[in-house]
């Protein structure tokens, strides 16, 4: 167990060194979410000031964008950290070391969380200062939303990383594009009832749907839907287990295919 923790600490140190090596990388973590929030923040201000019927939806829009970014950046942080190993042709070094796949996955999760906190905390403060929108007013709900979205991001990141191991850099674009695939069904900006009836079960099979419905419940009704959060968490545990199994199977397949040694070329 101690050996395992030491190896994960070594991997965390490796990613910390990488972040530390370039202020541009650190800036990039904040840059994209900040630019996005500026655009949506100004829209929020416009809707609020216009006193139109849309004014009340401004806050929901901003909250949804912030939480979507948690999911998107969580997955991206996981997948990009893994891609660093491919880009630097270091994966075989790691695979030949005593590092276990589960330890690699745990290190990527931790690093994804660190990257996410670096990227989102300054942006939430920026939104509060510039537009007066306080995401922390969601209280305990925010913690539940954050945990659930981060776990979903990890599960998707695990599958994306497995696909990259199996298919090589040809699957790299999945890291950028896969979240768009689930965006329409996650009901980020609209409630689930807007979807056709036959599509609603598909929406409820996705964990982010529970989070965004939960967020609307707080902002509209002032009510924390703990039932949704518990269901979401249980579903997330299933997805994370399935994703890790997929990661291991894809890794095994890559070993059969013989692509690990030349990965990144």
């Amino acid at each position: 167990m101690t050996d395992s923790i030491n190896r994960m600490a070594a991997m965390t140190a490796r990613y910390y060194y990488l972040l530390r090596s370039s202020w541009l990388r650190l800036l990039e973590l904040v840059y994209w979410p900040a630019m996005q929030m500026l655009v949506w923040g100004f829209l929020y201000t416009y809707l609020y000031d216009s006193k139109s019927s849309m004014a009340s939806t401004g806050g929901m829009l901003l909250g949804a964008v912030l939480l979507w970014d948690v999911l998107f950046r969580g997955q991206l942080g996981f997948s990009f950290t893994f891609l660093e190993e491919i880009w630097s042709r270091n994966l075989a070094n790691l695979m030949m070391s005593p590092l276990q796949p589960a330890e690699l996955a745990a290190s990527l999760m931790l690093m994804s969380l660190i990257r996410l906190l670096i990227g989102t905390i300054p942006v939430t403060l920026l939104v509060f200062v510039l537009f007066g929108f306080n995401i922390y007013a969601l209280g305990f709900g925010l913690i539940a939303f954050f945990i659930n979205l981060v776990i979903t991001g990890w599960a998707i990141g695990l599958v994306v990383s497995g696909m990259i191991i199996r298919q090589g850099l040809g699957a790299e674009s999945l890291a950028y594009s896969i979240m768009i695939l689930v965006l329409p069904l996650c009901c980020v900006y609209y409630p689930v009832w807007v979807l056709p009836l036959w599509l609603q079960p598909a929406a409820w099979s996705l964990t982010p749907t529970y989070v965004f419905e939960g967020m609307r419940a707080i902002l509209i009704d002032g009510m924390l839907r703990t039932d949704l959060m518990v269901e979401c968490f249980a579903l997330n545990l299933v997805y994370l287990t399935v994703a890790f199994t997929a990661f291991m199977l894809l890794l095994r397949s890559a070993r059969h295919k013989g692509v690990l040694l030349t990965m990144g070329e």
């Binding site: 070594a10 075989a92 790691l94």
Partner: peptide, 25 residues
């Protein structure tokens, strides 16, 4: 050691040796 594999380019030599030393316990 293999020419097909590289050590992370953005880490210093000391950092790389430190990471791999810790990985190998």
């Amino acid at each position: 050691e293999s020419p097909y594999v590289a050590l992370p380019a953005r880490l210093t030599v000391r950092e790389n040796l430190n990471v791999f030393g810790r990985l190998y316990g």
